[in-house]
Design a protein around this nucleic acid. Structure first.
Lengths: 141, 141
DNA sequence: CTGTGTGCAAAACCTTTGCACGAGC
DNA sequence: GCTCGTGCAAAGGTTTTGCACACAG
């Protein structure tokens, strides 16, 4: 499996952008996080390693990671963007508890088939998806 | 089919809330809109009928409609919430063009099966879903 | 009458942007 | 050196909230 930092560096080189220590720290921290992390949560984690990194840099890096496919934006309806590792090609969805906010990932082969079918029918070139199922988890009942 | 205003009025009565002319106008306008409408677009439509209705009332009403199941919040990644009729039990998804923003609805029976399967497996009581497929539409290629 | 709803403006919130300085190549 | 990146603060956009008054039940 190709490492994320290689993907990033190739992308930077190709676009004439530069490697910086900030980008390294942010990527590292993002990968170490469990996933489904918001910009401010990531910022909070980063603050511990390097308190001088600003919000803008975190946001800009997340956009960069999204552009090169390392990250993917997801949205759980809490009013802010969340990010997860995007290079993982497994088509998955999220099961979100509307009571306690707990989130689980699930994988279903059926999603891939559905996406293929739909995008052919409407003549779209598919480029990602989001599938979120909301419910109440066992504990919250 | 049970009318939305009946659903709303029952909900209001049950919660000890009140019927108001504003809520009527907002509901009417929301239903007349094509769907996938944002709060400010709805406000804009409402302004023509009754220019004195404020933003807060529109937001508060949309939350109310969402609570009683008349509306459903959807999110197309443009940074603001959009609302569609929620009592329509047809399980559908959205196909969003990431280039021009055009949105189409599609229906697939497979989604229902998938949701049922997943929520049983993880022991969640399902309560809604979002399924968005992103791509580039025919025109934008 | 009592408590809820409304409109306004201000606040809160997340995200983006302008700018001067700093750092990679 | 030239260009891109960064941090800060300020601006941008959407949504929520506090408050005094209005209105439904």
């Amino acid at each position: 499996m190709r490492k994320e930092n290689e993907i990033l560096n190739d992308y930077l080189r190709q676009k004439g952008l530069k490697q910086t220590s900030q980008r390294n720290v942010i990527l590292e921290t993002f990968l170490a996080s469990g996933g489904h992390i918001s910009a401010d949560e990531l910022q909070e984690m980063i603050r511990k390693k390097n308190p001088r990194i600003g919000f803008s840099t975190v946001y800009r890096s997340l956009r960069l990671f999204t552009e090169c496919g390392i990250a993917r934006e997801v949205n759980f309806g809490d009013g802010r963007a969340r990010f997860e590792r995007g290079f993982d090609k497994t088509q998955h969805g999220h099961l979100v508890c509307t009571s306690c906010g707990k989130t689980e990932e699930f994988t279903v082969a059926a999603i891939q088939k559905t996406i293929k079918h739909i995008s052919e029918k409407y003549d779209y070139k598919p480029d990602g998806h989001r599938f979120e199922v909301y419910g109440i988890c066992k504990k919250c009942r």
